[in-house]
Design a protein around this nucleic acid. Sequence first.
DNA 1: CTTATTTGTAATTATAATTGTTACAGATTT
DNA 2: AAATCTGTAACAATTATAATTACAAATAAG
Lengths: 177, 177
Amino acid sequence: MNINSQFVVATHIMALLAGHKLYMPEYTYVNSEMIAESVNTNPVVIRRILSKLRDADLVVSKSGPNGGSEIARQPSKIKLSEIYEAVDDKGTLFHMHYGQPNRFCLIGGHIQESLKETLENAEESVKKVLSKKSLLQIANDILERAGIDTVQPSEEISKKLRLMKQDYENSKLELQT
Amino acid sequence: MNINSQFVVATHIMALLAGHKLYMPEYTYVNSEMIAESVNTNPVVIRRILSKLRDADLVVSKSGPNGGSEIARQPSKIKLSEIYEAVDDKGTLFHMHYGQPNRFCLIGGHIQESLKETLENAEESVKKVLSKKSLLQIANDILERAGIDTVQPSEEISKKLRLMKQDYENSKLELQT
DNA sequence: CTTATTTGTAATTATAATTGTTACAGATTT
DNA sequence: AAATCTGTAACAATTATAATTACAAATAAG
């Protein structure tokens, strides 16, 4: 996973937590193992990303039985750019790391500084695009794609989601036997 | 080198060829070994990037003695976005490649499609920023940073550059002995 | 037309970055 | 006290990328 897939995984996590917050209020804390199964990876990988999301005040975690993580704010108030910035710890989408160019070379001696500003502008524009999309928009879009009409009363959505969750857990049990 | 450093290296190459085209017209073909020394890497690495630049009609290459590559168009007519697109063969700055998310999961099943559009918008905005900068602007900026006043007649610049080239080659000879 | 030079690319090795895994202390609930 | 879960370190495995070696094909110059 590079920065990009990390962003996608982080958004996956956030969307999952958003779903719980919005439609399963009795179960807002989701543990890393559940998330890992959803993403199809290892719980520690998830916890590492959660750690970054926590630093960015996007989630809150709790240890102990029935612990896990929950979303820290309303999904409508969370912009994708915040998720992006949370996982982008290097600070540069365009990370320049080719070994020192020849110092005698006219071009090599200055190209990095010369490109720096342009690349920073590029990254800014990426963040701007991402800031125009909220987590709620993504969550609703996902539900729609899953065939769930988000215009209907949320209680009905909750029921459907609980049913799907049940289905999933049953199928897991079948796999084990 | 990732896509980003490849872009930086490709721009380095282009700026070098631009310099030769603009100020050393008697020597527009530069071979991969020279370029490699300037970038401080292996000639084959350079030839691979040149190959992409060639596919994008940004350079022309010639084999045999005194061969090498030259810039295919006026630096003022080349936008950085063209260089970016030339090396970005995967087509996506935000390449999603985390293993299949759990198909039973509501989120995992749809998040990739859901994010796709936003990520494509982000990449478009990057290209737009890069399209606003020409290779000539970069080349001039580099020369200025190197202390060469690009407002003076180009013949004087040519002299200075030839002198610097000489210096560089002398220093190489010294290193060998 | 032979020799030297340079490209173009395949094949391989080396290196670096990332992910996955194991392990365990610390926190929290029951 | 026992069980569950987080947080993180340490290490192994995997993957991606770059570097290197090698050599056929093209071209230029004598």
